[in-house]
Computed example of a mutant assay.
Amino acid sequence: MEKRSIDLGRCLVRDGKADCHRCEEICPQRAITSHAVDQEACDGCGLCTAVCPAAAIEAPEDYAEALKKTMALTPQVLMCGKASPGGVHCLGFLDRRLLWSLATKRPLSLDISRCESCRPAVFAWLQQEATACNDALARAGKKTIALVHVKPAPPQPKKSRKVERRSFFQALFHSTAEGLQEIAEAQIERSFRFDASAWLREQQAEACELFCGLALRDGCTACGLCTVVCPTGAVVLERGEHAALHFAGASCTGCNLCVLHCPQGALELVPHFAGQRDFPLDR
């Protein structure tokens, strides 16, 4: 299958003050160097997508559509292509924020039973993220994620039937035309860029301790530079009589650009969101 690539127009490398190498550090295949992907080494696990704070990873899979299909299942279960033909190639793109959003809507099950033998690094990552999410769910009094093993569905036997000569050639013509169309579509390279923050906003996810928080020290001049550099719109400045800085924890990816660019050094990202969304500003 096609491998990943990095959109340098979105990657934090475009910002002179940022020094992000999260994708390179997490890649178990050492397939990413200097923000470029070695196509031969990449195995498509998706871990780079999980940690990229700028949604800069382009992949051949539509992760948003995969999550949509998961939400339509009863019961709601996340599984890879080895468990279900309709499953995503690998679950490495998931993180605790996505798991939280799914699990707070409806009971969620996660099948990582094949990951340890298939991709150990993905297995370790998903165990870590699921454990962190379950701890937060338990503290919030919500049902935790169940780890399950989904048996692959047996292949469906092909139905044989007799057809008339005319119907046979009509069916042959249509199947040939459809086959040619499938071949043509297979030649088209598709790539998707999964923006987890945008997906969380669509789901109206509520921030919890699993998300980053913001702290504001004295000295803010309401210059608004933090709102300009924030790639997800997590920081919004309200001017006027009731000037305030507003923070959307569910949208923050922890990229740290707002902190790096604050001329007064008044901002600080904290590892856990504690509920503060509004920061009044003195005139």
Rank of each mutant, 00 (worst) to 15 (best):
C118L: 11
G87R: 04
A130V: 06
T131P: 04
D111C: 09
E164H: 08
Q127W: 07
H149S: 15
V122M: 04
K69I: 01
A171L: 15
P154V: 03
V150Y: 08
N134D: 09
E185H: 07
S109E: 12
L99V: 00
A136Q: 11
R161L: 09
A153R: 11
T176Y: 14
R193I: 12
L137D: 03
R165Y: 07
I188Y: 00
P152V: 03
R96M: 08
E189K: 10
L99Y: 01
A177V: 12
A130F: 04
A140Q: 14
K142P: 00
D95T: 02
A66G: 05
I112L: 10
P107K: 06
Q128A: 13
T104L: 02
Q181D: 13
D135H: 15
Q187V: 06
A146W: 08
R139C: 11
A64F: 06
P152N: 00
F123Y: 15
E61S: 14
Q156P: 02
S160H: 14
G86W: 10
V148F: 02
V88H: 03
S109L: 06
E182P: 00
S167G: 04
A177E: 08
A72W: 00
E178Q: 15
D111R: 08
I57A: 10
H149L: 12
A103C: 06
V148N: 01
W100Q: 07
W100H: 10
A83W: 01
E164G: 14
S117L: 13
S117W: 14
L94V: 01
Y63P: 02
C115D: 11
L110F: 03
E65I: 07
L99D: 04
L91S: 04
L147G: 12
E182A: 15
L102V: 00
A59T: 15
Q187Y: 02
A177W: 11
C90W: 00
A103N: 01
K143N: 01
C133W: 01
E61M: 08
L137N: 08
P60T: 04
Q127P: 00
T144V: 11
K68N: 11
L108P: 06
K151M: 12
Y63C: 05
S160C: 08
T131I: 08
Q127T: 03
F168T: 10
S113R: 08
T74A: 12
W100K: 05
E65S: 13
C80N: 09
A64V: 11
L73E: 14
K142R: 14
Q187R: 12
R119I: 03
